[in-house]
Design a protein around this nucleic acid. Sequence first.
DNA 1: CATAAAATTAAACAACTGTTTGAAACATAC
DNA 2: GTATGTTTCAAACAGTTGTTTAATTTTATG
Lengths: 226, 226
Amino acid sequence: MSKSPVSGRALTKNKILDAAEELFAEHGFAETSLREITAKAEVNLASVNYHFGSKKSLIESVFDRFMESFTNQLMTEMAELDRGGEKVTVTAVLNTLVNPLIKIDDIRPNGSSVFMKLLGKAYAETQGHIRRFAMDRYSHVLARFTRLLHKASPDVKPSEMFWRLHFMLGAFIFTLAGHEALQEISESDFAQKVSVKEIISKLIPFLAAGFSTNEIPHNYLSAGEA
Amino acid sequence: MSKSPVSGRALTKNKILDAAEELFAEHGFAETSLREITAKAEVNLASVNYHFGSKKSLIESVFDRFMESFTNQLMTEMAELDRGGEKVTVTAVLNTLVNPLIKIDDIRPNGSSVFMKLLGKAYAETQGHIRRFAMDRYSHVLARFTRLLHKASPDVKPSEMFWRLHFMLGAFIFTLAGHEALQEISESDFAQKVSVKEIISKLIPFLAAGFSTNEIPHNYLSAGEA
DNA sequence: CATAAAATTAAACAACTGTTTGAAACATAC
DNA sequence: GTATGTTTCAAACAGTTGTTTAATTTTATG
């Protein structure tokens, strides 16, 4: 009813988003105050509530901006794989994630890093209920991804697919959300600098092998019970 | 110099720890106030600072109580596997985690669930730097675990081992930290109730297969660059 | 019992939180 | 120009935060 600026550049709004996403990724949502955000953005404190209504909806806006960019790119990649000549393997499906992720760096420096840190924080703070939220809001993306995985592994049952998909998601987000700490440890303990791209190139074969295992779960837990 | 009660039961201290760990796991550290904790524990507000000094050190104490129990059990399990007749496979090594985890339920209801949720929160809030902290404080446990993995897979280089170990850790913690959300989704979407034990029995083959992949990482990222 | 140490309590502290207000500044249209 | 709607601003709001204080009660020790 009175949202979009008539012809202005919505500069303040973007400055807030820029500052917020960085601080949120670095320190978490609850640990970042609006005053820190507005100070970094060099705007007035009240402008957050003016432009976004509340802190909660600012958080959602920060997310939306990332997700819109990411999911659009991902849909394109998946469409390309689906129609293209390349054989649809699990590895190929996982690889559709890579370009959309690192493309975020084109928009802003360290974008993919910020994005993954943000995702990690969001999952933890909402007790994983952001899973449901994201699955609802981007159900079409997830459905397409799942369909491709099914194409690559037709024998995996839907319910089994669900679990393996979320195992992959877990390793992916968790690893990349904490990639800076891992990079530091790798450098100090093995004298090896490892870029995010290299981490991903190690991670994807790991995930693909995990997904493709056809081992029947044994009764691991039957022994040693009181 | 004046810490341990001379003969008393340290009841207040434990009541605080019990209440804190539950609230921390449910809502996060920053989102839980000392007043909520002391209200739930039915103790005076000031007793937190009296017994623990600060909120920060209360958080650490909550962690220590879990980790001490867990790592002790784990060390026993690993020692058993290491000396015992059973062949040391990656799956067997991963299985040493299971009993120490579910044994926490004996100490208090839903203990393992609380523990995993706590771990997930801690990793996110500290940007993964709890990794370094945990790796320092429990380096002997991690070293033993790594040694067993090496015994199961002698061909994997230490630096490669490091990454695969943390991929496994990521999938493990991330999945179990959000297991309640996953259980809900599984039940609503597939009409399947899946217990934590069952999740773990699906997860371990996944991790083992991922760890044991000998695929050489290709240059996934060379194509499609601007 | 007397004494000293330990533990609990209600109250207050200063700092910080997200949000609201009403006036000022700005831009745009007539 | 005036009028209109949008955006910015400093200030204040009411509420919550972790922590400290000083008095009191409880517990243990001689």
